[in-house]
C-alpha cells in the first residue's frame, strides 16, 4: 500500500533532484488543448512521464501548451535539446514515445518520419 509516509523517505533524494532539474536540460512540450486531448494527448503525455520515470531521466522537463492552431496534426510533441533546433512531431501516438525518447531526447537523433516542423533557436 502506498502512503504519505513513502514520500517522507524520498525527501532527501527529491531535494537533490531539484538542483538537477534546474539545469539546462531537454524540454518536451505536449499540446493539451481540447484538440490535443481529443486526439490522445493525455495518453501521449502519460507515456512520456512513464518513460522518463523508467529511464530515470531526471533532468528532462515536460511541459504542456494549449492549441497552437495545427489541430489536424495533434497530438503535437515538441522536443528542445539545449542549443539545438526545436523539433515538432505530429500525429504522435503513445507507442511512438519510446522511440522519440531513446532516439532524440537521449541520443540527439531526430525521428524524421514524425517531424512536422523545425524552428532554429537563436
Amino acid at each position: 500500500m502506498k502512503s504519505l509516509a513513502d514520500l517522507q523517505a524520498l525527501r532527501e533524494k527529491l531535494k537533490a533532484d531539484i538542483k538537477l532539474r534546474r539545469n539546462e536540460g531537454t524540454i518536451v512540450i505536449v499540446g493539451m488543448g481540447t484538440c490535443g486531448i481529443a486526439a490522445g494527448a493525455r495518453e501521449v503525455m502519460s507515456a512520456i512521464l512513464d518513460e522518463l520515470a523508467v529511464r530515470k531521466l531526471v533532468d528532462v522537463q515536460v511541459r504542456q501548451t494549449g492549441c497552437i492552431g495545427m489541430c489536424e496534426k495533434e497530438v503535437l510533441v515538441d522536443v528542445i535539446r539545449p542549443n539545438e533546433p526545436r523539433i515538432t512531431y505530429g500525429k504522435v501516438k503513445p507507442e511512438d514515445i519510446k522511440k522519440i525518447i531513446a532516439e532524440h531526447v537521449v541520443n540527439g537523433r531526430i525521428v524524421e518520419e514524425l517531424v512536422v516542423g523545425k524552428i532554429e533557436q537563436n
Binding site: 502506498k2 524520498l10 527529491l14 533532484d17
Partner: peptide
Amino acid sequence: EVREVLGDAADFTNPEVYSW
C-alpha cells in the same frame, strides 16, 4: 498533504512524485 510532507521538495514534475 503532499506539500506538507515534502516541503520545498514537493515537485509534481519529478518522476518519483508523479509515480507515487
